[in-house]
Design a protein around this nucleic acid. Structure first.
Lengths: 187, 187
DNA sequence: GAATTAATTCTATACATATGAAATTAATTC
DNA sequence: GAATTAATTTCATATGTATAGAATTAATTC
């Protein structure tokens, strides 16, 4: 799913008082354009315009009768829309296409020099965590590192390797065995 | 119920791709304005604007945390809206406030001279019926009229009283007893 | 075939709104 | 208290859209 333009279109179609009235009227019985125009007190050309929008998203359909165009509601489209809109699936689908790492990348970029080193270590917790999630990727999963090895790797980012190392452990991104043992990356 | 401005407002709030994404994101977890801005790739001021619209209709709420404003979804508002929108009651309510006689009045007006007489008798069936529904009100309910009395009353509207009389009977708005008997208004 | 009529399409206009830069506000950190 | 920072508000602008008159199309009636 690339986006939800159809869903937005349905909402747009319903986001107008006149069109909402038309839907309400057609829920009772079909009407011609002229009749709807009289009922909601607008000109036929305006009603045509509104019906075209409702028709585009499948909420109404038309049938020719004599030389009238009789419009009727498509209840199936309404129900179908209801299900799609408020289901958990829909929520997830809307979310799926968003880049969930965008924020992290922005923060890392804000705090990084062109060579990849950190300008400073973020003081704010949220931003520190974003940077730490970035740093931890310099370590291989399932590999044990000595404290010196950890420091050497972190030194590529910032001189204060002790702080970085401590925060990585404190934030549960890396773990340390017993007393002065080895470090490894979590998950 | 005077109108459904709140309902239109909810649809308007959801009728925007960015706001729909925000709702999708907040369905998973709360976010700050800045985080949302990064996730949907818009400036914080724009996100503030969108969140204000969602907040106005009760779809989201905010709580202060440190100096962040954390926004969260209000699922109850969503469900409440779903129910209201697509229920039959809603449809009827939307319809109730519309003047169902507006079409008739328009037709009668189109075919009437300033003094109340008819310019012509409508040739089209729908418009003829609207005019007949108007004419029949010149007769009292539960009163029997002779053919001459009927003609006299109809003559106030048009010279061709025979046609009008025949159409009133044919359209079941008036009834005639047996052979050459009296006429009376139905219902 | 000419006249009538409903509906649509075209066009112009007024109003609404999404966007982001700049200024302001409110809260936190040092 | 000064500096920093997130959020909001203000403002300008560009885009979108609801409305209806005019022109056009399609169908019916006489």
């Amino acid at each position: 799913m690339t986006d939800n333009p159809e869903l937005v279109a349905v909402f747009k179609a319903l986001a107008d008082p006149i069109r909402l009235k038309i839907v309400g009227l057609l829920a009772r019985q079909p009407y011609s354009v002229e009749q709807l125009a009289a009922l909601v007190e607008r000109k036929p050309s305006t009603i045509s315009h509104h019906l075209a929008k409702l028709n585009e998203v499948g909420l109404v359909s038309a049938r020719a009768e004599s030389y009238y165009n009789i419009y009727q509601l498509e209840p199936a489209a309404l129900e179908e829309t209801t299900r799609r809109i408020f289901s958990k699936e829909q929520m997830s689908a809307a979310t799926a296409e968003v880049d969930l790492d965008a924020y992290d990348r922005k923060v890392v970029n804000d705090f990084s020099l062109p060579d990849g080193r950190l300008k400073t270590i973020p003081a704010q917790r949220k931003k520190l965590l974003a940077v730490l999630r970035h740093l931890v990727q310099a370590f291989e999963p399932d590999v044990r590192y000595s404290e010196k090895q950890v420091n050497d790797i972190l030194a590529r980012y910032h001189a204060d390797t002790a702080s970085l190392r401590r925060e990585l452990v404190g934030s549960q991104l890396m773990q340390r065995e017993g007393g002065g043992g080895d470090y490894w990356r979590i998950k």
